[in-house]
């Protein structure tokens, strides 16, 4: 296949009559506001995540009086901080999604926003997962106290398991993230470099 063949292939790609009918039916639906953009759906997981985090924060705050030692109270405060941070990260991510959702800008500007956000997103993944691990440990401590009245932190097994599991988890996860996102990150950074004036 030559370069001219590529150009010919592009030109020969015709629109079928059947598809044209779909287009005009769609315009009819849009003018009657029956069509709903799928783009808005991208925000749903972020919104649900934020709501869950906020509900958990309220739950801990309401049961805070059950935490009778300074250590358990510190764990409770730490959990609230982590949950609020996760909510803020979710809202921050939503704000950026809306920012990118301006289709009237030039393509290079859209690409720049797209690549910048991607780089930030992947960097944020590491922070996010570390926070999730911290939250996992604090949740186990808090739930056992809230529902059975027991302080699980008195058990040596709990700490041994938590730290060894945490270490293995974070080690494997950071390697996975680095390997998985290495190419994507490299491509995004190269693209940003190319878009520099």
């Amino acid at each position: 296949m030559e370069l001219d063949d590529l150009k010919n292939t592009w030109h020969n790609r015709s629109v079928q009559a059947q598809q044209q009918n779909v287009t005009f039916k769609l315009i009819d639906e849009m003018t009657q506001i029956k069509y709903h953009s799928k783009i808005k759906r991208i925000a749903y997981p972020e919104i649900v995540g934020s709501i869950i985090c906020l509900m958990a924060t309220i739950f801990i705050a309401l049961n805070f009086y059950k935490l009778d030692t300074l250590f358990l109270q510190s764990v409770g405060i730490l959990s609230i901080i982590v949950l609020l941070t996760l909510s803020i990260l979710s809202f921050w991510s939503l704000r950026h999604l809306k920012m990118i959702n301006d289709f009237n800008v030039s393509y290079s500007e859209a690409l720049k926003r797209f690549a910048t956000q991607k780089v930030k997103f992947y960097k944020l993944q590491k922070v996010n997962m570390t926070l999730c691990y911290v939250l996992l440990v604090t949740t186990i401590i808090l739930l056992s106290k809230f529902f059975s009245g027991k302080d699980i932190t008195g058990s040596n097994y709990f700490w041994t398991f938590s730290f060894s599991f945490g270490y293995v988890f974070l080690l494997f996860f950071s390697r996975f993230v680095t390997r998985f996102y290495k190419d994507t990150l490299k491509k995004s950074e190269e693209l940003l470099q190319e878009l520099q004036p």
Partner: peptide
């Protein structure tokens, strides 16, 4: 321009 930008955005959407 709009067509290209929406396609770019859709790429992001499809990865989710």
């Amino acid at each position: 321009r709009v067509a290209l930008n929406v396609s770019l955005y859709q790429l992001k959407l499809s990865k989710k």
